[in-house]
Design a protein around this nucleic acid. Structure first.
Lengths: 191, 191
DNA sequence: TTCCTTTATTGACCCGGATCAATGAAATCC
DNA sequence: GGATTTCATTGATCCGGGTCAATAAAGGAA
């Protein structure tokens, strides 16, 4: 049970004892989502942080009826409206499975108790926040310094699997353009 | 000495003992920068995290000869190329004082020692990373969902002091447009 | 103060992406 | 399998922002 995530945490936390791991594992819950189902909704506080065992998830929000995609998440990644999870305020975006997805979930309250009972998790929490931070810093850099076409080229280069698994109109939103624009960018490049 | 930052940390870390604070304060260094001076450069590893006692700092990088502004920082905020600070890789952006600035600095190695000797700082480090994360999440949301004009209106609403203290061409870059475009946006709005 | 550099504004023109609309292709559902 | 919804492509038009260039305004240095 939880072999995947156990391995993941052992790599991430050098000082993780069996006892601490067990305390952690005791609080985990497995969940199943079908394609199209929401893991969590915008406007509601997100109490869960999920580790994706299998599948794919998008983070999105809806402004003026338009769905904006912030990110894609796949196997062996965390997913959460991390901001809502941290601030206890209503989430700014929702999470939706775009494939059938299995997650391993940890509840906010359980995490707080773990922080207290096993400070080794403070380090893991800090490193997770830091990793998220780095990801966002790069995304901002891309949005400020690159044109949509460059962003697409770089996505092709860095994460080609995204293009295989994610519908194009969602990729377009992630890149900050309309589906029509992305279609034309692809045409332009292929010529 | 360090009254400002002491107060700041007492608020942030409920369990901060005098002894832990002293260990922390012993490692702090005050630095002075003149307007236009760089606190740290892109392409080099950033070993310092700074608390701004007084002044204003921009985070920027240069792509194809163009300077892109990622953020502004003012009194009682941390500033660092946090990504470089965390990853120990060359920084993606530099930091420059846009006013005469006083910072209180902490070196990376000192912080790591503090993490080991006083685990209470793990919590502070985690919360700092989380706060940074939240800031970036909002910035991405703004870049994806809002047009430049909306971003300017929101900046006016949320941080009017930025417009007072930061030259307009830097604000333009932060918003992701050229100085000319921002000038026209301002004209459009004022009509 | 005056000079000189930096910053802000305005004009003209261009271009990539937005929008609206129609058609094709593909995935999904009985 | 065929029917229907979803997704991708293409066309036409529009517009905001980019770019290049000139000028004006503001700030600093001496």
């Amino acid at each position: 049970m939880f072999g995947n995530i156990h391995h993941f945490f052992l790599q991430m936390i050098p000082g993780l004892t069996d006892e601490a791991w067990q305390a952690f594992a005791d609080r985990l819950q497995v969940k199943q989502y079908s394609k199209g189902e929401e893991l969590s909704s915008a406007e509601r506080v997100n109490h869960i942080i999920s580790f994706i065992e299998q599948g794919a998830v998008i983070a999105f929000n809806v402004v003026d009826g338009k769905k904006h995609i912030y990110n894609f998440f796949f196997e062996r990644e965390y997913v959460s409206d991390y901001e809502s999870f941290l601030t206890r305020e209503p989430a700014r975006y929702g999470l939706e499975a775009i494939e059938d997805t299995t997650t391993i979930d940890l509840h906010y309250n359980d995490l707080q108790q773990l922080y207290l009972s096993h400070p080794v998790f403070e380090r893991a929490g800090r490193m997770a926040a830091e990793a998220q931070f780095i990801r966002l810093a790069r995304q901002i850099s891309s949005l400020l310094a690159e044109k949509p076409e460059e962003r697409y080229r770089n996505l092709l280069r860095d994460k080609p699997q995204v293009l295989q698994r994610v519908p194009q109109y969602l990729v377009a939103s992630y890149l900050g353009v309309t589906p029509e624009a992305l279609s034309r960018i692809r045409k332009r490049i292929s010529l």
